[in-house]
Design a protein around this nucleic acid. Structure first.
Lengths: 216, 216
DNA sequence: AAAAGAATACCCACAATCCGGTATCGATTC
DNA sequence: GAATCGATACCGGATTGTGGGTATTCTTTT
């Protein structure tokens, strides 16, 4: 029988061990090897090869996204399934651009990963439902601004300045006072920021700023 | 045979599935249940109980540290093994103060987790080597003793739980819905949190949570 | 010259949060 | 046995933010 040869790339040994057991239960799959970072994954592909790589996004050294780029470029017949904690648009898009054809969240049930491996092996794609929904929104977003890499790029200078002040804990009124603007103006900017970033409510706004590194 | 009854608490279903397979291979262990966040873990302990809880540090809702505190306080005979990505001293110490007797890194080999579960079950402690080295450093010792006075300590369990959910971006209404409370109750808690921490407005609240490491 | 984008400012209805309260109930503490 | 604390729930008025608009001005691009 021709089993899918899978390479597991993740810096957490415990997760790798668990995944190995999960995959070995499937009659059509075999774990060909393990890698603890992106560099090792690329090296393994050069040495031994594999049909599908299950790749963690966040790894020390060469991260999963860059490793995916290198692997897909050199071995286009190999498929890559990203395994990620985040359903963040930035991550997902960067992974897709790097050439991954699968994106499975760690919060998903195991059958999603199994399905993703089979799909990618067959030249198809597979995304966790949550990611699919995100991609649909992103598609809408993309129409508005062709080639928009990052939603943050959509913001104008003024909007970024105001976002930062809001993220530092200022109310609209305070921002208006410090920038010598009408509260109405700040409200308008804030409204536009929320819309461009597809956020809702002040909490979302602050969390976005934190995750973007705009404030700590 | 008296198997150790283990509760798995982690928000990543794939990891839980893997851990289950890993532990079920051991003749003296059985996975009694799974929880996807701290609240579920506490509930499970109240309903079904377990000998050892394998607890992820970073979980949505009630996080692993808070959940450990509650579980250890209510069921002192139960042992908790923290399973974490970080060997950060802050995390380790907070977990220990909360009452965890084991701390295993996800980058460790599986036998460490197995050993930790057995040790904790026997009333002993177990730490990943990397963590042990960290704990031996004396300057860390000072942090443990000196510290104290933290406004966060003023909050009650319930208030911390609600703070975390707010900090994750939920509105009062959403929090109330998920915890089956009246919106009024959540508003009261929120009010008390703001007063105790001397904060004003949602932005302050989120920023406080971020700086405290309650959310990423 | 026309179109597009950015910054400014305003309006309104609605939702959410804040800040005073009060109040009940159970557990713990003194 | 009384007092305190934590969790629960409610009220009302004030403030703030949301989401739907519209509009003017200036600059840049086409």
């Amino acid at each position: 029988m021709n089993r899918v040869r899978v390479l597991l790339a993740d810096d957490h040994a415990i997760l790798r061990s668990g995944l190995r057991l999960l995959l070995e239960r499937e009659p059509d799959m075999a774990v060909a090897g393990e890698a603890t970072d992106g560099r090792e994954a690329v090296d393994w592909m050069a040495r031994e090869g594999a049909d599908v790589v299950v790749m963690d996004v966040g790894m020390p050294g060469l991260n999963g996204i860059e490793a995916t780029g290198q692997i897909v470029r050199r071995y286009p017949q190999a498929g890559v399934v990203m395994l990620s904690m985040h359903s963040d648009e930035t991550y997902v898009l960067r992974c897709l651009r790097a050439g991954a054809r699968g994106y499975v969240l760690k919060e998903s049930a195991e059958h999603e990963l199994i399905a993703a491996i089979r799909a990618v092996r067959a030249g198809k794609s597979f995304f966790s439902p949550k990611v699919t929904r995100l991609l649909q929104q992103e598609h809408v977003e993309r129409i508005r601004c062709a080639g928009g890499e990052d939603s943050y790029d959509l913001l104008t200078e003024r909007e970024r300045e105001i976002l930062q002040r809001i993220a530092e804990g200022s109310s609209n009124k305070e921002v208006a006072g410090r920038l010598c603007l009408s509260v109405h103006t700040v409200e308008t900017h804030r409204k536009n920021i929320l819309e461009k970033l597809n956020l809702h409510g002040p909490a979302d706004l602050i969390l976005y700023a934190v995750r973007k590194g705009i404030v700590v």
